[in-house]
């Protein structure tokens, strides 16, 4: 884990809503924070290096891009095999996120989650079939949960 100091934290609070849309955004941030632009840039470079910032740029609304069908495919697979299977599914081009998560028995038997995005539900279901083929006999149960509405999408918000 990276230790961030109070200046890093202030920088995160100042940028979590977005970068200033001005010609010299790091100067603008520096003015807000009372820092030279060069320090803003150096600190952001370090946060990128250490992964506190995953990446920097445009965060598209995938619905607006035509990816109106987003399916959370969920799978019950053998715990002894899940790491190899998860790595394999994660490598598939259609998968944007792939995680092992806990089951909640009896309501929720699934331990492998893979998100896929398509232009319609048929495309998502076809992608789920590809994943099923990759998982093969290891699948004991499966489901696809389609999102029917984005209720909130703000991202991280540190308070203050």
């Amino acid at each position: 884990m990276e230790v961030i100091d109070s200046i890093d934290r202030a920088l995160i609070v100042a940028t979590q809503g977005g970068l200033p849309l001005v010609s010299r955004p790091y100067d603008a941030l520096g003015e807000t924070l009372g820092l030279p632009a060069s320090e803003v840039q150096a600190r952001m470079a370090r946060l990128l290096e250490t992964g506190v910032i995953r990446r920097m740029g445009a965060v598209p609304n995938h619905y607006a891009l035509g990816y109106v069908a987003n399916g959370m495919t969920v799978w019950d697979v053998d715990d002894a095999q899940i790491d190899a299977l998860g790595e394999a599914v994660g490598q598939m081009a259609c998968v944007t996120h792939c995680y092992k998560r806990p089951r909640h028995m009896p309501d929720w038997p699934y331990n492998l989650f893979a998100m896929v995005h398509g232009h319609d539900r048929a495309e998502v279901l076809a992608q789920a079939e590809q994943i099923a083929e990759r998982l093969g006999a290891a699948v004991r149960a499966r489901d696809v949960l389609f999102s029917s509405k984005i209720l909130k999408k703000t991202g991280l918000r540190l308070v203050g």
Partner: peptide, 18 residues
Amino acid sequence: LETRVLTRFGPMFQVERM
């Protein structure tokens, strides 16, 4: 950003890393 084609423009954070 106004028309919400983009939800945000800027850094994406991994809060676990801090």
